[in-house]
């Protein structure tokens, strides 16, 4: 066997849309872009509307609350360790969208119980962002979305 450890390191340019979004999180703001033609709101934001193929027209601030669209409980960590307590995460549909499957939203941790994931009662629940005291401009500035 020939063993090889690759070195693959990057400095990803967040670009226009994601830079504003991440800097917004530092200010406890969830910012999205809006296309005035089709009215679609993008969170996470894009500088172009993928449906209309034109630049988005401006920024909107969304409430830091929404409803749980889907959720899972994982007993395996990112580094593949067995977890005693599961990590619960899912997609949060932020308020401000009339469409069922296309919506401004976030994938994040959900502060709830395993039972509520198992019996699916968490789905549709109203949740609100729990912000970290110290924020750096990262998706981790939000600790989780917690049931209200």
């Amino acid at each position: 066997m020939i063993r090889y450890v690759p070195k693959a390191k990057y400095s990803y340019s967040a670009g226009q849309a994601q830079s504003v979004f991440l800097n917004g999180l530092k200010e406890k703001k969830i910012l999205g872009t809006v296309c005035n033609k089709c009215k679609k709101v993008y969170v996470p934001p894009k500088m172009y509307c993928e449906e209309c193929f034109k630049p988005t027209d401006g920024w909107v601030e969304l409430k830091d609350e929404g409803i749980v669209h889907t959720a899972i409980a994982s007993f395996v960590s990112w580094t593949r360790d067995r977890l005693e307590e599961p990590i619960i995460s899912g997609t949060i549909k932020l308020y401000g969208s009339e469409r069922d499957y296309v919506f401004p939203g976030m994938f994040h941790r959900i502060c709830t119980t395993y039972d509520k994931v198992r019996d699916m009662s968490i789905i549709g629940a109203k949740v609100k962002a729990v912000w970290n005291e110290k924020r750096v401009g990262s998706i981790e500035d939000i600790q989780c979305f917690k049931e209200v």
Partner: peptide, 19 residues
């Protein structure tokens, strides 16, 4: 200052190639 650059690694640990 308004732009963010996110440091990260590709999720590759190590390979063992069979000759």
């Amino acid at each position: 200052e308004d732009l963010i650059f996110w440091k990260g690694n590709m999720e590759v640990e190590a390979y063992e190639y069979d000759e």
